[in-house]
């Protein structure tokens, strides 16, 4: 690990000031991703700004009936908060599908959003990586790419965003509240993470010096079905190969509304709102679910080793829609997929 200075920020303004003024500064929340990347010298901050002293630790009711999650609330505290388990069980389920009990106690809302890809070439400073070292190349394209993107990749980068929480936030149409040198703004979830395009080094649309204050969850219509289905190489404590988050509202056997997001298939949680409209007005049956899965994946492109992920994502989409429609969401304790 490279040597660094350590600072503990006591106010949001102060944290933004240091973060904007020091090009080598990194913010530290739970530290579970930052400290790990520093150990591999992938992240080499000159100053670590500890933001745990900032007043961003609360979950609060919003005037519109939604909830605001402070950026420093731990993943465990979000997942087990009764307001979340009752009103946003999809979010609770997705968080509990990720990492481990220990890590969820440490990890925060803001840190989870900004965790970096798990691409093994990104983690290895001995080899090129366009995300780590812009312009150096992408060994994943011709190397180990079994877990990599099947949607939205660019010739420069085929990395995926690894978060589970973000797949649920995407389906929930959350917004991210940020503050920077130029003030406070809200970013719709779909515009927060970006596709790699020409600049894979940028994961998000955050401007320099901006920090995350909170994530806002909108009020949902009552009694929406949901499920979070995560497929991985072992049943727990592993990143997803493919995951699916579904929210669905069905009245009189007709789908009124459906939100569907795919995880670990692209550089961001993958949502196609046009495709979702295909479901509205249809019956919640397998043939309909297959049609939307076809549509979601018709632009999928396989790398040498990850062609199986296209079929896997297709089947997981259909199964997750069935689980949500039947009111039998995937259990994150008993891993049997019914």
């Amino acid at each position: 690990m490279k040597r660094f200075r350590y600072m503990k920020a006591v106010s949001v303004r102060e944290a933004i000031g240091i973060f904007a003024a020091e090009p080598g500064a990194a913010l530290m929340a739970g530290g579970t991703n930052l400290v790990d990347l520093m150990k591999y010298d992938v992240s080499t901050p000159t100053v670590v700004v500890d933001i745990n002293g900032l007043p961003l630790h609360d979950i609060t009711e919003q005037p519109d009936g939604g909830l605001r999650l402070g950026a420093l609330v731990s993943n465990a505290d979000v997942a087990y908060d009764p307001r979340i388990t009752e009103r946003y069980p999809l979010l609770s389920s997705a968080i509990l599908a990720g990492a481990s009990g220990q890590l969820r106690n440490m990890a925060t809302v803001g840190g989870n959003l900004l965790q970096r890809t798990r691409c093994s070439y990104f983690y290895d400073v001995q080899v090129p990586c366009n995300k780590r070292e812009p312009g150096s190349g992408c060994p994943a394209k011709t190397g180990l790419n079994r877990g990599h993107a099947i949607l939205g990749a660019s010739p420069l980068c085929i990395a995926t965003h690894p978060s589970d929480m973000c797949v649920a936030l995407s389906a929930l149409d959350a917004t991210i509240l940020v503050e920077g040198p130029r003030g406070v703004r809200s970013i719709p979830f779909s515009e927060f993470h970006r596709l790699p395009g020409e600049s894979p080094e940028r994961d998000t649309t955050l401007e320099p010096g901006e920090i995350i204050l909170a994530v806002d969850l909108p009020l949902l219509p009552p009694s929406m079905g949901y499920s979070y289905l995560k497929i991985r190489d072992r049943l727990s404590y592993a990143f997803a190969l493919v995951s699916v988050a579904v929210l669905i509202k069905i009245d009189d056997r007709i789908i009124q509304q459906a939100h569907l997001s795919l995880g670990s298939v692209a550089h961001k949680a993958w949502r196609d709102k046009d495709a979702e409209t295909l479901l509205v007005g249809a019956a919640p049956v397998r043939a309909v679910f297959k049609r939307i899965a076809d549509r979601l994946l018709d632009s999928a492109i396989a790398q040498e080793q990850n062609g199986f992920k296209i079929e896997l994502a297709h089947r997981a989409t259909v199964r997750c829609l069935e689980q949500a429609a039947a009111g039998t969401p995937q259990s994150q304790a008993n891993k049997r997929i019914c």
Partner: peptide, 12 residues
């Protein structure tokens, strides 16, 4: 609370 002490900076 249980945590992974390898990912905690002592100074913090």
């Amino acid at each position: 609370k249980r945590v992974n002490s390898c990912l905690v900076l002592a100074i913090s």
